[in-house]
Design a protein around this nucleic acid. Structure first.
Lengths: 216, 216
DNA sequence: GTCTATAGGCTGATAGAC
DNA sequence: GTCTATCAGCCTATAGAC
């Protein structure tokens, strides 16, 4: 790794941590420069603008996560028939493993994705980065549970993403609503409980496709 | 309604719409003033600061939503035994009805809540406003499905909120991942499909509490 | 209650020395 | 590649006329 690349990594790490903590708009380029221990001008030299710096922060780990998820999907594709639960694991486990073992930056990244995904402003950035793999997983869900229509699979996928984002953002909502009895920091435990939750959810959704509602 | 209150409502409406669209930090007090058609100084006269203006925007509809949810919970409490599905409806339907019939401001509010809930900065604001009703619903979930531990009920509640927020934020994620075949704008349809999804989810979670996992 | 003018500070970006 | 100095613009908040 050249000197320039190492400098860029330091800047990306600092930007990631600050953006995750305080939000893109609140953090100034000076904050990032101070956090990285580099002069202000160097950031613009390497990344061009604040906006491009942010995009680079998002892109860095998105690529790694997408690769691992693709691999996990290929793995379970070999063993037929594929179950919904296997697809859920292929989606959640790569993220869990990276968050647990991939260094502290992944914790920041989780918080960052949560903010970015809900801001209208970065919508294209997120869907450009994650849209392709999303299509793969919607296909896998529909294949694993034939009762699911395409619409249901897509809706279910979006719900799954909402839950996933909430887990890896690890904000304190859970701690507070549980009066401190459950901690949001234990992402492994959160994933373990999310699997049966989501497996049941897709089962319930599939069942509602075949059984008419009581009102009808 | 006095003149001052009407002016405040106009300011709140403009602030809500702009904040929802572009985010708190991006929107300036000048933007809000222009949107409301009032001079800049008037906003600080009525609300004191930008931060307090934002809190007022959040509080206004939170109080109304909490009241309706409480009422819905009381209603289903009268008919024993309470089902998970009834609790889900008590949680989602008031929000749906307000979003559908309560005027365009509720659409903005949905987007705003999504952003606010994921920003570390406003965490206390959200939990202060919604925490009490959250406790009521966690109790109701645990009562409706005795197999659920308190921890499971709390986790499930948080997941339910994640999904709800995603639905009412109505961002374009769903439209994009479904290649335009499903629209996120139809919140009624989204709620209808979320009910069996979540009912199945709590069923799956409860089942996982009694049945040991295959690995054990 | 409403409106105007302005103070004081921080922002992103860059020109130019090394 | 790295670092410093600086510019022009925008921000929130407020003092004071009406």
């Amino acid at each position: 790794m050249g000197k320039a690349e190492r400098t860029q990594a330091v800047i990306l790490d600092a930007a990631e941590a600050r953006f995750a903590e305080a939000g893109y708009d609140t953090v100034s380029m000076r904050d990032v420069a101070d956090g990285a221990g580099v002069p202000l001008g160097l950031i613009n030299y390497h990344f061009g603008s604040k906006e491009k710096l942010f995009e680079a922060v998002i892109a860095r780990r998105a690529d790694e996560l997408n690769t691992r998820r693709r691999e996990a999907l290929v793995q379970i594709g070999k063993a037929a028939p594929t179950t919904i639960e296997a697809v859920l694991r292929a989606f959640l486990r790569p993220y869990l493993e990276l968050t647990r073992d991939g260094g502290p930056g992944w914790r920041s990244y989780g918080k960052l994705i949560a903010q970015t995904g809900q801001s209208h402003r970065w919508g294209n950035l997120i869907t450009n980065r994650f849209g392709e793999v999303a299509g793969l997983f919607i296909d896998a869900l529909a294949k694993a549970e034939p009762r699911l229509t395409r619409e249901m699979a897509a809706r279910g996928y979006v719900h799954m993403v909402s839950i996933m984002v909430g887990i890896f953002a690890a904000n304190e909502t859970l701690d507070i609503v549980s009066s401190g009895k459950v901690t949001s920091g234990d992402v492994e435990r959160a994933c373990d409980s999310a699997i049966p939750f989501l497996a049941g959810a897709f089962e319930g959704l599939a069942a509602s496709a075949t059984a008419p509602s009581p009102a009808e």
